[in-house]
Structure formats: C-alpha cells, structure tokens
Amino acid sequence: MSAEAIQTRRDWLLSDRPASRMQARLGRAYVAWRRFSANPLAFVGLLIIIGLLVVAAFADVLAPYSPTIGDLKGSRLLAPSAAHWFGTDDLGRDIYSRIIYGSRWTLYVVILVAIIAAPIGLLVGTVAGYAGGWTDAILMRITDIFLAFPKLILALAFVAALGPGIENAVLAIAITSWPPYARIARAETLTVRNSDYIKAVQLMGASPFRIVLRHIMPLCISSLIIRVTLDMAGIILTAAGLGFLGLGAQPPLPEWGAMIASGRRFVLDQWWVAGAPGFAILIVSLGFNLLGDGLRDALDPRSGDQ
C-alpha cells in the first residue's frame, strides 16, 4: 500500500465530519488505539494478557507433564533443571506444567467475577440514577454500606459459610466487588438523564425499562470496562489469598494461590515450590494493572476530544 493511500485512510478516520456512524466509531477507536499504543507500559500489559490467554488456550500443548499426576517415586521436590524448568513439588508434579494449567483457573475466576459483578453494578447504578428520589437514595445507601466493608474479610466470612471451593470463592468476591461499578454507572447515568436525546426517546413513548436498557446502559459500558480491568488485579490477588488460606480452589486443582500454600511448608529449603506460582500471580496482576492504566488514559472521556 502506498504512503498516499495510508495518508488518505488516516484522514478518513480522523475526519471532523464523519459521513456515517461507522466512520465516526472507527475514527474514535483509531484515536483511542493511537493513544494506547503510544504508551509502552500499556502495550506491555496488553502483551502479558494476550500471553495469558494464549497459555490458557494451549495449555495441553505447552505443558510437558500432567498438572495433577506426579512421579512420587523419582521426582519429589527437585530443584529447577532442564527437565523441570521450575522444579517439582512434594507430590512429584512438574511446577511449570501446573502453572500453565493454573492460568485457566485464573482466567476462570476473573471472567466469572466480572460477568457476575459488573451487571449487578450496572443495573443498580443505572436504575438509581435514572429513577432518582427515594429509589436512588436507598440503592445508593446500600451501595455505600457495601463499599465501607473490608472486602477480603467479608469474602472470607462468605466462603467460610458457603464452604470452600473455587465457585464459592468467585461468588464471595463478586458479592463484595459490585459497589464501585454501581457508583460509576450512576455517575454516567446522571450526566445523560436530562439530555435532549433521552427526552426525545421519552416523547416517543419509550418505557423507562427500555430507556435504561437501550439508551443509558450502553453509554456506561466503556467506563465500566476500564474499571473492571483495573480491578482484575485485585480480584486475582483476593482469589489467590482465599486459595492460600485453603478456602478457594481445592487440591489437586493447580490454582496459583493454593500452590503457594502447599509450598509454604518447605519454603525455607525448597523455595521454588512457593516461589514460582507467586511470580506468575505478580506478572499477571501487573499485566492487568498496566493494561487498565493504559485503557483509562486512552479512553478517558475527559481527555477524549484532544
């Protein structure tokens, strides 16, 4: 493609007078992408997350050994070597393979928490913001009450009652992490509820249900996505903490937090058993934090029109 063609395509994308909705959307996406990719740290974050997805998808191919069945006879607590890159644990299982499979559980947790907590927050926030009055006051009081709780301790108590297990851990984290999303959705709703286009839809006779669902919720999505991405690291750390305390994933699941807990007993002599999974948590959390920061800088509506 010639330089000229690229130039005109860029002009088309950056046009002040888009001829179609698609052109406007593509243009905005292009501007956001340009701002995002100009930020090297955000790009590193993106690469880490893509790496996580690839590793989780191809775990069967990438892992040289079984994640759950070890060689009890010949390979207990071996130090890192060419055969076992990150060593082996007390049941003779290859830690590298377990970490690779563990990426699936990490993704499982963050995705489930996000798809449970974000819609709850979105619903509470948009309804409160659009309805106003007493509905707003009551819903926001409940939100603020939940916001004032210590999240980890509350999640702990929830799992203690529900019983240990990765599903219950997900549920407990989701229950404690929706309030910020409700606040964001409400703030976004308040900025648009009195705008002309909402009045126009009202005049055309749309029901409040339809207005909230079709005309308000879509506008809250982008700021919600940023916030969810920024929270992903926190979700991973909480899930790992629950796993470490024996409340999250149960053995023999190769969940990273639980792996650290099982390596804790020999940490003074065989540090790699607990060391490697913790490093994996650090890298992935860092990836989500960098990506979230980058997304916020790129998509922040306050700096959107520069």
């Binding site: 690291a233 650290i260 940490v267 913790g278 860092l286």
Partner: peptide, 18 residues
C-alpha cells in the same frame, strides 16, 4: 507503586522469611 498493587502479600512475606 505498580508492584505494590500487583504482588500477593503472603507470597512476598514467605520470600522475606526465606
């Protein structure tokens, strides 16, 4: 700051002990 927001506290504690 970034590492502080990303590192599991119990893991760092174990490494500190080692």
């Amino acid at each position: 700051g970034l590492i502080g927001y990303s590192v599991p506290i119990f893991w760092l504690g174990l490494l500190g002990l080692v």
